[in-house]
């Protein structure tokens, strides 16, 4: 079931630049969806529209069936978010910051807040002013505020930006813990391919405001029919593969068509006088997919 639906979003900034061009996708319950794209691809604009902070020219976002554009208050009841860099009030303590933010959701439960603060490992510093916090602590506080009060969906806009490797790993484990133990649905906006590959089930790739891919993250794909072909006769191999309905990219990665078994394709190659020096299952990386899409367009 789709918990968050992005429908035909189009947004043009006052400067005339097209930020989004008819973008649509959905985030299913319990999944982690990665939103990928270069800087300025439109990832944060989608986040902004989802939170009702940016108005789309066309289209809408629905959360749990409620339109953000028509009923923002009710739709946002189910969301927790880190949108762009989380900037806290430095002159307030972490606890006071949480109190101010939670009051805007009309909610305050000290026991639950303490539980979440403990979960993000901030219980020692929570009474200190946030001016004294490191970047990692601020990000953990940002996650804590997003988790209060118990959202169904978490929107994370480049949450590991600026974190050190330990911080990134800690944050990643926290997110995966949230999905595993709390069944949280998460939309993660990032330009870090590795981060998306390790955390997400599916991804949407944006390029210049357009959706160029929506599907499973390659490393998560269960039954692939992709092989690495080793041969010196690239031209001849391509001819044979074309005849069989298979495709091969410039790196020799072959996708076997559904109507054939992989060994039949190898037989066809050998019969077509292609010298096959290697034929091994290949797991595509997200980077290959992303770079392929970038170079194609």
């Amino acid at each position: 079931m789709a918990l968050l639906e992005v429908r035909h979003l189009t947004k043009r900034w006052p400067t005339g630049r097209l930020a989004l061009d008819d973008v649509g996708f959905e985030v299913r319950e319990g999944e982690i969806l990665g939103l990928l794209g270069h800087n300025g691809a439109g990832k944060s604009t989608i986040m902004g529209i989802t939170l009702g902070m940016v108005r789309p020219d066309v289209g809408e976002v629905r959360i749990g069936g409620r339109s953000v554009q028509n009923n923002r208050g009710a739709a946002l009841q189910q969301i927790g978010a880190i949108y762009e860099a989380a900037v806290f009030y430095d002159y307030l303590s972490g606890w006071q910051n949480l109190r101010v933010l939670c009051s805007l959701s009309g909610w305050w439960d000290e026991t639950e807040v303490k539980r979440v603060v403990q979960m993000v490992n901030l219980n020692r510093a929570i009474r200190q002013k946030t001016a004294t916090y490191s970047h990692g602590m601020r990000q953990r506080l940002a996650l804590a505020q997003a988790l209060l009060p118990q959202p169904k969906i978490l929107l994370l806009d480049e949450p590991t930006d600026g974190l050190d490797p330990e911080g990134i790993r800690e944050f990643r484990e926290l997110i995966l813990h949230l999905r595993k133990h709390h069944g949280m649905t998460i939309m993660l906006n990032s330009h870090l391919l590795g981060e998306v590959e390790q955390m997400c089930d599916r991804c949407v790739i944006l390029k210049d405001g357009k959706k160029v891919f929506e599907g499973q993250v390659p490393s998560q794909e269960k039954s692939r029919r992709i092989f690495q072909l080793g041969t010196n006769d690239i031209g001849l191999a391509r001819e044979v593969l074309d005849r069989c309905g298979a495709t091969m990219d410039k790196f020799g990665i072959v996708e076997v068509p559904l109507q054939m078994e992989p060994h039949e394709l190898v037989t066809a190659l050998v019969n077509g006088r292609v010298q096959v020096s290697a034929w091994q299952p290949h797991r595509r990386t997200l980077e290959e997919l992303y770079m392929g899409l970038s170079s194609r367009s």
Partner: peptide, 18 residues
């Protein structure tokens, strides 16, 4: 300017009320 507004308005509170 500081970005606090984005944190506040990620909550289900209307701009009018804020």
């Amino acid at each position: 300017e500081d970005g606090h507004m984005r944190l506040l308005l990620a909550r289900p509170v209307s701009r009018f009320r804020l």
